[in-house]
Design a protein around this nucleic acid. Structure first.
Lengths: 150, 150
DNA sequence: CGGAAAATCACCCTTTCTGGTGACGCGGAG
DNA sequence: CTCCGCGTCACCAGAAAGGGTGATTTTCCG
């Protein structure tokens, strides 16, 4: 930032110098031709006004006001793996639990997991057991509280 | 916005006019005193440069950047009553649904609601029906998605 | 290699849940 | 007053879920 400003000031100086030189030239030219002072002043005024505008623009171009607006974030689910291991749930059991939470029947779960319905029953039984639940709705409820399923 | 710019331009005109008047005064004063042209030009230059800078500054001052900041959503549950009425759920059915969502059996719900288990079955059946669910776990899942139960 | 944990599957029996039908009382809207 | 929505209750048949036991295969780790 500091470097930027230094460069701008140098640029400003250079342009100012150039303008002065130009002024000298114009001055003698017009004086020789015996023109009025008003025209001379007008030119100077226009020149420096333009330069000033350019300076003002350049100096403030990066002035931005950052306004932070608080907006509700979408509920993000992150599985509590600590709970999972604390409950002693195996990966397969966790998978069956997730499918149970989606409201699927044992038969449907069996199809999705490519196993027999009996196998699903076994897993489901263990899940209920480890979660201390008597019914699958209860198991899902507990799992949700423990952040094991969304 | 357009109004703002118009006002600025008018202001600019006024100041420019004032500056010109000032110039005239200065011009005669200094001419009478027979001072050099350079000083006169310098004053004009300084005057218009300052004005230009002011103009540039004024014209570009406000650039507002709105940045949205995600804030963790509060776990506040608010029932979507629109959904409830859209589903045609009666108060009693909603109550039974809530108890189902807690993982209670029909028998347990009957005890809490002070009705017979058969009554609970009837309500539960209607709830499944209105939610388009085949099992209570599915009903609970749907109800949750529809923000009918926490 | 050997054993433990995990995953798989099969029965059998009980409990719970679901679906369908029917019925009764109550209170509000037409 | 009558009809309708709501809540209540009952009964039954079938589906789904839960509990228990036993067995085989896979996987993984020391």
């Amino acid at each position: 930032m500091a470097v930027t400003y230094v460069r701008k000031i140098i640029t400003f100086g250079a342009i100012a110098g150039l303008a002065l030189v130009t002024l000298q030239v114009i001055e003698y030219r017009w004086l020789v031709l015996d023109h009025s002072l008003e025209i001379y002043g007008g030119i100077i005024a226009a020149l420096f006004a333009a330069m000033g505008i350019w300076l003002g623009l350049t100096l403030t171009r990066k002035t931005v006001e950052v306004r932070e607006v608080l907006v509700p974030a979408p509920p993000t689910f992150v599985r509590d793996d600590a709970q999972v291991s604390a409950l002693g749930l195996t990966p397969r059991e966790l998978e069956i639990l997730s499918l149970m939470a989606e409201g699927l029947s044992n038969r449907e779960i069996a199809e999705r997991a490519f196993v027999s319905e009996n196998t699903v029953k076994t897993h489901a039984g263990r899940v209920l057991d480890k979660l201390g639940a008597a019914r699958r709705t209860q198991a899902v409820q507990r799992a949700r509280e423990l952040r094991v399923v969304p």
